[in-house]
């Protein structure tokens, strides 16, 4: 790699056309870059990494990455990933989703994957809108915000993504923003290292639809708002509840060791085979 090259190039598919497909300034590229840094720091072999996405702007991320990649159906990435992880527990399986992808149509799979605590790293790029389809409101669109399908202001309270994942049983839950990209890659690294279901909420923005409809300015303005409108968990605890109600709180909200699904199933195999003590790693690989 020549000294002028970005260290991330080692992880890109050179047979793919660049620059990427996302709008100029979109945060998804920043999340991809953070993911690459996390994987590189851990030192994972590319063959051992699978990146699975659903449908939406985030859905187009895996194809750029030189890993085992799958672009599945809207909302169902976690279900596909559950099958792959269960079949090949040795793989590190990372699932990239948007807020609508993961929490609207994908909500059922989101809470069950967390409940099972199967070893997946779920990264939800939360820009509070359906970007690809042109700016419809999503389960994380703020109350009162304009959207293509909420022309008179959104009347649905948004999901608290991290609390939802934690309540459902995730072993690791953290939130950062695309402004805090280095903090974000730390959380992604911890999430990947975690043995269990880990969720990283990467708060981002969509200046093309949400920003335009709510007069929030171009990418640089929306990025600035992430900087000025977010605080660390520690700082947030000092705030009075009514103070800064819509501030974005960044931090690790859960990091517990909980039995991981595929490991528990190895116990099932042992019990089924009635093997007294012998531990049997269940047969992955070719059937």
């Amino acid at each position: 790699m020549s000294k002028d090259e970005h260290s991330a190039y080692n992880y890109l598919r050179h047979t793919k056309k660049f620059p990427n497909v996302w709008c100029s300034g979109c945060g998804i590229g920043i999340v991809m870059s953070a993911l690459i840094r996390a994987i590189d720091r851990i030192g994972l072999a590319k063959d051992d990494v699978a990146v699975i996405s659903g449908i939406g702007c985030t859905g187009r991320m895996p194809v750029y990455l030189d890993f085992n990649t799958m672009h599945t159906t809207h909302g169902r990435a976690l279900a596909f990933a559950t099958g792959l992880k269960f079949a090949r527990p040795e793989l590190k399986v990372i699932v990239i989703m948007g807020d609508g992808d993961a929490l609207a149509i994908g909500g059922n799979h989101f809470i069950h994957a967390a409940r099972r605590n199967i070893g997946l790293t779920a990264i939800v790029v939360n820009n509070s809108i359906y970007g690809m389809t042109g700016g419809q409101h999503s389960p994380t669109t703020p109350l009162g915000s304009r959207a293509a399908t909420a022309p008179y202001g959104n009347i649905e309270p948004p999901f608290p993504v991290c609390e939802l994942a934690a309540a459902a049983g995730a072993a690791y839950v953290a939130r950062s923003t695309v402004y805090h990209a280095v903090e974000l890659d730390r959380y992604i690294e911890q999430a990947i290292r975690k043995n269990g279901f880990s969720l990283v909420e990467a708060v981002s923005y969509c200046h093309t639809t949400f920003g335009r409809m709510n007069k929030l300015g171009p990418a640089v303005e929306m990025m600035r708002r992430l900087k000025e409108n977010s605080v660390t968990k520690a700082a947030a605890e000092k705030l009075a509840p009514s103070e800064r109600p819509d501030v974005i709180v960044r931090g690790v909200f859960r990091d517990e060791d909980r039995p991981e699904y595929t490991a528990l199933y190895d116990e099932v195999v042992r019990r089924a085979q009635g093997a007294a003590g012998a531990s049997v790693r269940s047969a992955g690989g070719a059937g």
Binding site: A79, F80, G83, L84, F86, A87, H109, A286, G287
Partner: peptide, 26 residues
């Protein structure tokens, strides 16, 4: 026989998991 069984949350997830497992070689 070292195989794997999982009951998913719905039928959509069930076939998705099968496809994921098949991509994994099973």
């Amino acid at each position: 026989i070292g195989g794997k069984f999982i009951q998913m949350e719905d039928e959509i997830a069930s076939l998705a998991a099968c496809i994921g497992a098949s991509v994994g070689g099973l």
